[in-house]
Design a protein around this nucleic acid. Sequence first.
DNA 1: GCAAAAGTGTTACAAATACACCCATGC
DNA 2: GCATGGGTGTATTTGTAACACTTTTGC
Lengths: 231, 231
Amino acid sequence: MIEVLHKIDSVFTIDCVIFGFDEGELKILMIERNEEPYKNWWALPGYYVGQDEGIDHAAERILYELTGLRDIYMEQLYTFGDVHRHPNGRVITVAYYAMIRLNGQKDLKPVTNYARKAFWAPVNELPELAYDHSQIFKKSLEKVRRKISYQPIAFELLPEKFTLTQLQHLYEVILNKKLDKRNFRKKMLNYGILRELNEKQRGVSYRAAKLYKFDRKKYMKLFQKELSFSR
Amino acid sequence: MIEVLHKIDSVFTIDCVIFGFDEGELKILMIERNEEPYKNWWALPGYYVGQDEGIDHAAERILYELTGLRDIYMEQLYTFGDVHRHPNGRVITVAYYAMIRLNGQKDLKPVTNYARKAFWAPVNELPELAYDHSQIFKKSLEKVRRKISYQPIAFELLPEKFTLTQLQHLYEVILNKKLDKRNFRKKMLNYGILRELNEKQRGVSYRAAKLYKFDRKKYMKLFQKELSFSR
DNA sequence: GCAAAAGTGTTACAAATACACCCATGC
DNA sequence: GCATGGGTGTATTTGTAACACTTTTGC
């Protein structure tokens, strides 16, 4: 018989990985920290979980306080609990992630002064982040890559109306590979989850493309049939 | 500006979902609790995380203390943090899962007396479990179902040497559907990750089947090529 | 010889891939 | 008229699905 440890309190936080797509680039929502440790460093929006709140709810609250974004549906990614991940001692964090539409630049205004500012950063040009946030970011990018191959999460990132080429570019950016135009369009249209609109692009100096909408209802009907863009 | 909560301690635990396969049934490792709350109830092996240990390490320690099993590689499943999931107050738990081989009945001997005993229970006949463990179990079963469709985790559950029929039965049990014998064998052998042995089943009262081994090296070479048994 | 499971191939259909040219528009 | 991206079809290959009978073995 070995002696059993008794109840031990730990400090507990949430970090949010929020993806956006803008100017043909995949971006991630960052804050600039205004407190020690890692003062002035870039970090994922994250903070302590309250004693009396569920963690899903805490994630939404924290994201709002640090960035001003509300009502973002996030999913849990992973929990990070290395002993030395936080310089002040044992802090366990649950990472959440979401993909959102950047239509017309939603205002990013931290409601606390724990963050000096919040901003979108291209995922390809990130410096080293505070704590183990670089690792958390890396893991969420892998997750998004896997997930986009079988679920229509790409639509969350695009404006409501989009062209097939925009959609394809987004897939290419996330999967980091070129896709064949004809095959991509054939496959996408075959799923039957896009609704063609009676509308075209405007203001482009070349042939205007048709606009499409993601048809959530039709998608829900297929439901089990998962999309596949793995190859 | 709203006021920001300050550091808040939470109680933090790990729960382990361990799958096994025996007598043609999928089983899960349970303990019978010896302490309040939920004294005498069935529960997943789980306990408090130490102040100075990483959570992955804590998972291994806790599984050992409650069941006597050592060196089981577990993966993280999900973190459960509803406010009311634990009657004694706020307790956040990280669930881990693993699939293991039950060769010759490994001894199950709790090293603490927090568990009265540990035992294998068929997944189809579980009663309601302590805390939210029924929910945790349900989520891990879904995960295993998804994962077996694209990764060779089935081999972890079988004895080292097995027949194709045993392998097929395991897939059928986990996926909860019948598979076609000829197609299954064709597909499996085509992957090239099975090594045929110069050995046959013994002690059966019908035509003895060839035995196979999972060839981990060949699998690692394919690596990216994920197995598919989704339909 | 019979019960019980092992073992085996073909055909039909669906999905994925590779591949190149003309079209519409704004300037 | 030219630059730019929009839009389209076919042939090939690959993978999946459906399907039934003979063989081996222990008793």
